[in-house]
Amino acid sequence: MNDSEISSLKEKAYLLRQDILKMTTKAASGHPTTSMSCIDLLSALYFHEMKHNPKNPEWQERDRFILSKGHGAPAQYVCLAHAGYFPKEELNHLRQINSMLQGHPDRVKIPGIEISTGSLGMGLSVGNGMAYAGKMDGLPYQTFVVMGDGELQEGQCWEALWTTTFLGLGNVTVIIDRNGLQNDGWVKETKDPEPLAAKLEAFGFETITINGHDFREIIPALQKSRSAQKPLAIIAKTVKGKGVPFMENNPDFHGKALSPEQLTEALKGLER
């Protein structure tokens, strides 16, 4: 990973953050902050790590990506649009009637979405199924699943984590967007998942904790997951609303889009 690759990923993430803010303000709805906590992870996946083909979304050997925390949909949509799965113009119609981009990922309407999500806790189970099928067929793809830290309160997550390791699905990479906030407040006050790494390790994972906004940490972790002895869980420490100071770590900004005035201010101050 050289410096120019890093700076090009940073520039990409900057543009994607702009689009997340613009599209949610246009929709006057959606979850910009949870999208911005995971956008560096998604940028690294879509624009560096994953084998995929926007012209042939169903390519059999593609790496799979599942956004289990489906309310982060804008983050995935901007990646798909910038990668060429559909025209960027579609981003202007997020959450609007008769448009393709639903409030949460829709596997039937949107090219590049592997499975519909939006009800929490299901993504890793689906990813396990994809990985299991890949092993049956001897296909070398990797399945990447991004889960929220609040989402981990859903019991199905732990059923699925257990399944990943019990079935030895090293072709699954679990990525936890550890932004510390959930809809109604702080994760640690609601139902603290700590000690998270110890729990995952007890379930049979190898874990690595990284700064989820630093490509120099993200990329090696993703690469490592492909060859890990045991399934790898990446705990990505992130900041909800990352990039816009007045949105960062603000518990009142879960499902809120910016007003047009706030958007202007946010875009001015957006970290590059």
Partner: peptide, 21 residues
């Protein structure tokens, strides 16, 4: 056998179905 976890089993089956099973 998926163990006694119907929720995990059903979502996992959906993942398999998306891969042609």
């Amino acid at each position: 056998y998926m163990g006694i976890c119907e929720a995990d089993m059903v979502s996992m089956a959906a993942g398999m179905a998306r891969c042609g099973k």
